[in-house]
């Protein structure tokens, strides 16, 4: 395990575990994050995992500077046991495809020389992995979309994309938890919230989760009460 350290500004340090997004690097990121959160050092303010890095914000004092946080992390992580890649949680996300919820579904079909039904079938058949949560509250970076429905971003971004909209941007797919401007191709919308500001863990999804998208009708969308079916 080769970890490299470098500063992010004067109050954070970045631990880099590798240069590519692989199963090993994402697992290592999760292991390091868990280890540091369990260590509960007073000097550590916040830990932010990403694809191949873990960033640690720390309290700078006369006795505790960059070299001290680096030493502390090295000591804490030298005996770290890597998490076993065990069966991940699968979260089902119901999606009402097309119509007002997915104004770009037809374009995605046209671009890939497919029918709308085929696009829905391909998008909802895949199993996706959440590589990291970041950028916006509860926003999952999802890997695993089929290249056969990949579509470039819109040349003119929309000023407003409603919350919970499911979109495609290049080879990536995702769900936007809160209203936002953006250039995604919008294919549908889920009735469930991904950002849960008043829950203890404010994000429905977490790094390591698996996701399946389940097509639902407008009626089902309207009737949806409650949450996703998370299965262990």
């Amino acid at each position: 395990m080769e970890l490299t350290y470098s500063p992010l500004g004067d109050d954070a340090i970045v631990i880099e575990v590798g240069s590519d997004i692989t199963k090993e690097t994402t697992n290592l990121v999760r292991s390091i994050t868990k280890q540091l959160e369990e260590a509960t050092n007073d000097e550590i303010v916040e830990v932010i995992p990403a694809f191949t890095t873990v960033t640690v914000f720390y309290e700078v004092t006369t006795q505790f500077k960059y070299k001290d946080i680096k030493n502390l992390l090295e000591e804490t992580l030298v005996e770290m046991e890597e998490l076993e890649i065990k069966e991940q949680r699968t979260v089902e996300i119901p999606v009402c495809y097309g119509g007002d919820h997915g104004p770009d579904l037809k374009f995605v079909a046209l671009h890939n020389k497919l029918t709308v039904e085929e696009v829905i079938a391909i998008h909802s058949k895949g199993t996706y992995a959440v590589n990291m949560i970041g950028f916006a509250p509860g926003f999952p970076f999802i890997g695993g979309m089929s290249g056969s429905i990949a579509t470039p971003r819109r040349s003119t971004p929309r000023l407003r994309i409603p919350e919970r909209t499911v979109g495609i941007a290049g080879i990536q797919t995702g769900v936007y938890p809160i209203e936002t401007p953006g250039g995604w191709q919008l294919i549908g919308r889920t009735p469930i919230d991904l950002f849960l500001p008043y829950e203890k863990i404010p994000s429905l999804l977490q790094a390591g989760d698996r996701i399946v998208f389940k097509p639902i009708t407008q009626e089902e969308y309207d009737q949806w009460e409650g949450k996703s079916h998370a299965t262990d």
Partner: peptide, 10 residues
């Protein structure tokens, strides 16, 4: 680049 944490002042 691969997305990573940013901070106030980056």
């Amino acid at each position: 680049l691969i997305s990573e944490a940013v901070s106030f002042g980056s």
